[in-house]
Design a protein around this nucleic acid. Structure first.
Length: 475
RNA sequence: GGCCCCGUCGUCUAGCGGCCCAGGACGCCGCCCUCUCAAGGCGGAAACGGCAGUUCGAAUCUGCUCGGGGCUGCCA
């Protein structure tokens, strides 16, 4: 598993559920590690104590496991490692690479707003950058909060090569000094990120493009720690919502758990997510995790933001439902069916329904819903009003139901013998005209699982009872 | 506002100077199959943002322009 020196990490902030953007990032890290035989690490970036929650730390891990994206090392919690970051920050301070800043958040914000209003470029104005020792002690005596701010270069260019973007360069003069330790004594993302990538020997940083600009600051921090090496960076195109804006917890993002609850298979989600921002050379669309890992490479990652297409996900999910062995599919459907109809379902009916539903299902939930007529209480069974409206006017309906009842009364109880078409032939009504009403009578809806199999699963008595009930509605 | 990134069918993409009057997939439309609905098969409509330039030749290279997005936080 760790045949190469490649070390990658997925490093989510536990400030919410895992959504498709985060899952895709985890997946690409996972696939790359598997492709090259490297190590895939999980690191929780919970430096923002106020917003991180342990339930999200657990939730993210659960979801990752469900997806099959188990990590080789970790999880490492940055909140367990604050001393390291703070020590690094202290060294930078001593070396003059960082300085104490006494500005309050509100003051900085007010000055930024003023700069913007005046048409000037916002960003920390360097007020505390070159304070004398006397000025510093004066501010400390005032009881002002003390944060540590990193001194960025004022001249020159910061440049690095990104696997998917190519060379990315920016003038240092456009990057203001930034906080590395908050006034409350906790470290900031840039610092923790730089320290950990270095200490954990991360060789490839694969993450969203929203972090592209922060790379310059992290690299500056690495150099401040005396390290001139640069890991390989690969910034993935963003996954956007219908408005083409970045997905986030407060903007259009959907929890991966919701997809699970909606009846999507992890195989399908993985498969679809892999196709958002990457495509295999041979153009294949339906691939297993192993096939994805074999074909995946960073140099085929695309450049532009992608819209999450729910319809294509549904299609892939159907493909995966069809590929699952029957017994396996039954186990995937079972929890959804039990959630609806209670535990201890009749096994023959469940397996039978899954068997006839497999070739037409798009989601596990849809499949579980379609078999409701087999599990709902006899007393609770009812024909959907819309369906009855559609079929109530069927030509010769009374005769059709009488004929069906008679046929079910004395035919051999096999799917082949139940076939209603020969019995209906004398009535001169086409099966496609006559049968929807029988579907409604038996399944409660005019379209659903194959009728003859459904009748077979239902059993002779209950099937006839339902036909009789429908017949009674005609008066 | 400043900086950075991106721009091929509705959507996801293939394409890396001639094989492209642009290929595949989802979706959509039509036909076939059919016990309903699906699934499946066949066919169809549908795109290189714009303008210059380089070149014998550009979706592919360059510039400009327009458009979209990201960052600009004591969030990550």
């Amino acid at each position: 598993m760790t045949g190469s020196a490649v070390r990658v990490r997925f490093s989510p902030a536990p400030t919410g559920f895992l959504h498709v953007g985060g899952a895709r990032t985890a997946l690409f890290n996972f696939l790359y590690a598997r492709h090259v035989g490297g190590t895939y690490i999980l690191r929780i970036e919970d430096t923002d104590v106020a917003r991180s929650r342990t339930e999200w730390v657990d939730g993210i891990q659960d979801t990752l496991h469900w997806l099959g994206l188990a990590w080789d090392e970790g999880p490492f919690l940055q909140s367990d490692r604050f001393d390291r970051y703070l020590a690094a920050a202290a060294r930078m301070h001593e070396a003059g690479l960082a300085y104490e800043c006494y500005c309050t958040e509100d003051e900085v914000k007010a000055r930024n707003d003023a700069a913007l209003a005046a048409g000037r470029t916002p960003g920390y104005d360097g007020r505390c950058r070159d304070l004398t020792e006397a000025e510093r002690s004066e501010r400390r005596d005032e009881g002002r909060p003390v944060s540590l701010r990193f001194r960025t270069p004022t001249t020159g260019v910061s440049e690095f090569d990104d696997v998917v973007r190519g060379a990315v360069a920016v003038e240092w003069s456009t990057i203001p000094d930034f906080i590395i330790v908050r006034a409350n004594g906790t470290p900031i993302f840039f610092l923790a990120n730089a320290v950990d990538d270095l200490e954990m020997g991360i060789t490839h940083v694969i993450r969203g493009e929203d972090l592209l600009d922060s790379t310059h600051r992290v690299l500056a921090l690495r150099r401040a720690m005396g390290d001139d090496t640069v890991p390989t960076y690969a910034h993935l195109p963003l996954i956007v919502g219908a408005d083409r804006a970045k997905l986030s917890k407060r903007h259009g993002a959907v929890s991966l758990e919701d997809f699970r609850d909606q009846g999507f298979l992890p195989e399908a989600l993985l498969n679809y997510l892999a196709l958002l921002g990457w495509a295999p050379e041979d153009g294949a669309e339906v691939l297993s995790a192993a096939e994805l890992a074999a074909a995946f490479d960073l140099d085929r990652v695309t450049h532009s933001a992608a819209f999450f297409d729910h319809q294509k996900l549904e299609w892939i999910n159907g493909e995966w439902i069809r590929r699952l062995p029957l017994a396996e599919l039954v186990e995937r459907v079972r929890p959804h069916a039990e959630a609806r109809y209670g535990p201890g379902l009749d096994e023959d009916r469940l397996v039978g329904a899954v068997r006839i539903g497999q070739e037409r299902a798009t989601t596990l939930v849809q499949l579980a819903d379609q078999m409701d007529f087999l599990f709902v209480d006899a007393a609770a069974f009812a024909i959907a009003p819309e369906s009855w409206d559609r079929v109530a006017g069927t030509e010769s309906l009374a005769a059709i139901l009488d004929t069906v009842d008679a046929h079910l009364g004395d035919c051999e109880w096999t799917v082949e013998a139940i076939d209603l078409r020969p019995a209906l032939e004398p009535l001169g009504v086409k099966p496609r005209k006559a049968l929807p009403a029988v579907y409604a009578a038996i399944e409660g809806r005019h379209a659903g699982l194959p009728l003859f199999d459904s009748i077979h699963l239902l059993g002779r008595d209950e099937a006839r009872r339902r036909i009789a009930a429908a017949r009674a509605r005609l008066g």
